[in-house]
């Protein structure tokens, strides 16, 4: 946005953002700000909704009573985050005459993307552990940055989400630790899952910027919707998790991975970014199957939503 051509209203809005004021749903906001928020929050919401499915595959199969309880609660939390976020997005879309049905339609038609990690296959129980520990760990790093987001309803939702994700990380880490300390079969299952998930975890943060920020990123940084680059977040992930992964006796499938002792910067093998683009455009290993699962059950439940949307008073 060329700041020399701003209207008074726009200039005042940016001044509020600059001084750290939080914007509420009913406050005036530039259309561009609204669009950036909807893009981000609707994507986050459908990622939570679709993100429930990979782990859900293991919910009915979780090995012990304790794990059955924990993973049911965990996946239910993810659905709850989807609900919280879709309501934040709905408030923003109201002036456009849109609601959550439009968000779901955009998901099914491919207009709205969801996170790369949730397109991946989850063939073993260890995948449930790796998702809880490292995918949620990566998500907290990204979401932690947005806790200071200028849009107050999103920041408030994130506050709760990030707190719950803290438990999810412990839950996932606990599954991984049990496998790492377990039988050779359990350790092999965990190592195999890490090998498969590693590239997807690096992709989660998005391509490195190489000092070239995208228009969306620049706008979001200007609006204080986000404050860090993809690469900064990925570096944080390495610093937080690489040593923990090693301490479980696991091998990270990247022999080039190392940290510069002086700059503390990690060097690593880039994942295949073309593959990343194929995955997020719904051509990942499980994209079609999961979208099919979600859209079929969504369509078949249409009569149920109609029932509660327009129900006469019931006693």
């Amino acid at each position: 946005m060329p700041e020399e051509t701003l209207t008074d209203q726009e200039a005042y809005f940016l001044e509020r953002v600059d001084r750290g004021d939080r914007i509420e749903a009913d406050d005036w906001m530039p259309e561009d700000y609204r669009q950036q928020l909807v893009r981000l929050i609707a994507m986050h919401a459908v990622s939570e909704i679709m993100g429930a499915l990979p782990e859900k595959e293991w919910v009915p199969r979780a090995p012990t009573l304790y794990r059955k309880l924990a993973i049911t609660a965990k996946v239910q939390d993810e659905v709850g985050h989807g609900q919280l976020l879709i309501r934040v997005a709905e408030d923003l879309m109201r002036p456009w005459g849109k609601n959550r049905e439009d968000v779901m339609d955009d998901l099914f038609t491919g207009r709205l993307k969801y996170h790369n990690v949730f397109h991946m296959a989850t063939p073993t129980w260890a995948d449930a552990g790796v998702i809880g520990w490292l995918v949620d760990g990566a998500a907290v790093i990204t979401q932690g940055m947005s806790l200071s987001c200028s849009y107050a309803p999103y920041a408030r939702a994130l506050q709760r989400i990030v707190e719950e994700e803290g438990f999810h990380i412990q839950h996932g880490e606990s599954i991984c630790m049990a496998l790492a300390e377990g039988t050779p079969m359990q350790r092999a299952m965990l190592q195999d899952a890490l090998n498969r998930w590693w590239p997807a975890l690096l992709m989660f943060f998005g391509p490195p910027e190489k000092s070239q920020l995208s228009t969306h990123q620049l706008r979001n940084i200007r609006y204080r919707i986000r404050s860090k680059t993809n690469e900064e977040l990925r570096q944080r992930f390495f610093s937080k998790y690489v040593h923990r992964i090693w301490s479980l006796g696991l091998t990270i499938p990247d022999p080039t991975l190392q940290q510069d002792p002086f700059t503390k910067e990690w060097t690593y093998q880039q994942p295949d970014w073309d593959e990343f683009r194929r995955i997020v455009s719904n051509h990942g290993p499980r994209s079609e199957a999961r979208l099919g699962l979600r859209s079929t059950t969504y369509q078949e439940g249409e009569w149920v939503r109609r029932t509660i949307a327009l129900s006469p008073a019931v006693g």
Partner: peptide, 25 residues
């Protein structure tokens, strides 16, 4: 648990998830 993530309404998914969890509890 088999319904989790697939309920017809997202609020209902949360509610049914709680019920399932309590049954197993």
């Amino acid at each position: 648990q088999e319904w989790l993530g697939l309920a017809p309404h997202i609020e209902e998914d949360v509610a049914f998830g709680s019920i399932g969890q309590e049954e197993i509890g």
